[in-house]
Write a protein that binds this DNA or RNA. Structure first.
Lengths: 332, 332
DNA sequence: TTGAAAGCGGTACCAA
DNA sequence: TTGGTACCGCTTTCAA
């Protein structure tokens, strides 16, 4: 294998193996229809010449890009690591199926649509993995009209029946996560467990609050429990908690809708009052705050599965969804 | 423009405009050699048919993938946001030059080489942007041997003369950053400014420590100033600082090699002693710690420029480098 | 099971 | 300035 010469083509391999180009192609793509002896010869030639199929040539012919488009969202804040880890897992899971991840960015929804249009019409991608969708998301409509396969990481908040959503989605069950977190605190002897979340309406935030309520109700502790809310900001969170305490609230634990909020709560309450955050970001780990960890690897797997079934190419637009259970990482 | 019919090809456009396929191609790629009237007809036809060039077909013919490969590094703790923001900027800057970013992951260096080999040999990428290189990095050698263009974000630590490195690189001048941070503290009246960094040898860490020393020396404050070191971990950092204080150190400020360390220092010293971190991660912002911010957008621009010059295609392996000055984000 | 030929959608080259 | 033709590397179709 000579690293400096021209890359080998099927023709070179065919010549070396003493077969036709077609047989080489078959040997690579449908080995079961090629006679074993021939297969061996071809494989030896491939090895010897260091042959690799030319991706663009194959894509031109097969009309498949074997590529998924993913938008890299603009801001990230403290929870940016979540998308990061999801993306990492996605690249790996996609790679296992012979798919690659192409990134794009956009300044706003219009710009994003324009980018997606370019990618689709240039046959650069076979589909998309979108993050965070809201009701009436124009991207979903646009893709749906054109039968471009896609899956969202995040429920399509606002559709009447999420079990019958217009497109496939994967999400993490934040309600279950906060239920588990709250129940865990109850099991640790806590009785006055507060919740700090975002102002309603907020799809994920409201779900998480419900999980807290579920657990309180199950433990018979929900008398007069009032959720606190503030923007997703450490300082705002600390103020909100401090204010509540000044007003007479006596928390012996707080569960939060995010690690940002949890960090604020921790600052307000000190280390003696356990706090549970959400997303298990590096900050939570660094500071020693318990947190609800999203199963991002499983989410990536599910996204790929919804898009590709069990095969190696993207299926025509499908439906279906997966709601994955997170787990609490305790750091007590 | 009918969204459901088959995508238009050059032949369709040519027929509609009453010209040859070649003229269509020229109109798109070298409009200056086409007669204005013809150009208009072609453009009208393109518009009407909603024509988009097929990216793979073009790439097959031109033998350019117009794609750069970027490895998504595995985990990245609290400073993961840095790479995230760099990546975001890179996608944007690359897009402006008609380049796209393809991601790959790898479990270790061997795996990474294998991935890179696949991408290069399948003509999937024209080059790479690598993050964090060390002396004798096998990737650099491998790419160099094959004349695959690449640029690293991070200096090639360990080469004898970085101004004459074997490959182009972009980096941020951490020494200047810590110099500025330390000088800023001096200007704010601080006199006993400590440094908390990583154990030597550490390319970036050692540079940052030098910046601290530079500023102390310039202010005549370097008598007996001893740097503290520990692993990049909040708890370890807090312990290291606490231990130093117990041993008699009387810091009235501390500059750190990372936000992680800064967070630990803040925990150990409280908010009354100013602390400066590095990377300006969301955590620093959230907690209100000053921090040295890397100019990631400029770094991405520089990376693209080193790879592509001012044109729209990747140049053959070049050399050259850019050392960018960071700035301190003060949060006092 | 293997081979020959056609074509995927563009662009390079050269002649008109 | 424009058009004709070959051809990039691969896979599909059809015949042998």
């Amino acid at each position: 294998m000579n690293p400096v010469s021209q890359p080998a083509t099927v023709a070179d391999v065919a010549a070396a193996a003493g077969v036709s180009r077609q047989t080489v192609s078959n040997a690579l793509n449908r080995p079961e229809i090629v006679k074993p002896a021939t297969l061996d010869r071809v494989r030896a030639a491939v090895e010897e010449l260091g042959y690799r199929p030319h991706a663009s040539a194959r894509r031109l012919r097969t009309r498949q890009s074997s590529t998924l488009g993913v938008r890299l969202p603009p801001v990230h804040g403290i929870s940016g690591a979540v998308l990061d880890r999801f993306l990492h897992a996605l690249v790996e899971r996609a790679d296992e199926r012979g798919m690659r991840i192409l990134l794009f960015t956009a300044t706003d929804l219009d710009d994003e649509l324009a980018h997606m249009e370019r990618l689709v019409e240039g046959s650069d991608v076979d589909g998309f993995v979108l993050t965070s969708t809201a009701h009436g998301d124009p991207r979903a409509a646009w893709l749906g009209e054109r039968d471009v396969p896609f899956v969202t990481f995040g429920r399509p908040w606002g559709v009447p029946d999420m079990d019958d959503a217009p497109h496939p989605w994967v999400d993490v069950d934040g309600r279950a996560g906060l239920r588990e977190a709250t129940a865990g605190l109850v099991a640790r002897g806590r009785r006055r467990i507060g919740f700090l979340g975002w102002p309603s309406p907020s799809g994920q935030g409201d779900e998480r609050r419900l999980g807290w309520r579920d657990a309180l109700a199950a433990a018979g502790l929900d008398d007069g429990a009032v959720p606190l809310t503030c923007e997703d900001d450490v300082t705002a969170a600390a103020s909100a908690v401090t204010r509540a305490v000044d007003d007479g609230a006596a928390f012996d634990a707080v569960v939060c809708a995010s690690d940002t909020l949890a960090l604020g709560a921790r600052f307000a309450l000190g280390a003696s009052v356990p706090v549970v955050g959400y997303d298990d970001t590096p900050v939570a780990e660094a500071v020693g705050i318990s947190s609800v960890e999203q199963p991002l690897d499983a989410a990536a797997s599910a996204a790929v599965e919804l898009l590709m079934g069990s095969g190696r190419s993207v299926l025509p637009a499908t439906t279906g969804h997966r709601l994955l259970a997170p787990r609490v990482v305790w750091r007590d």
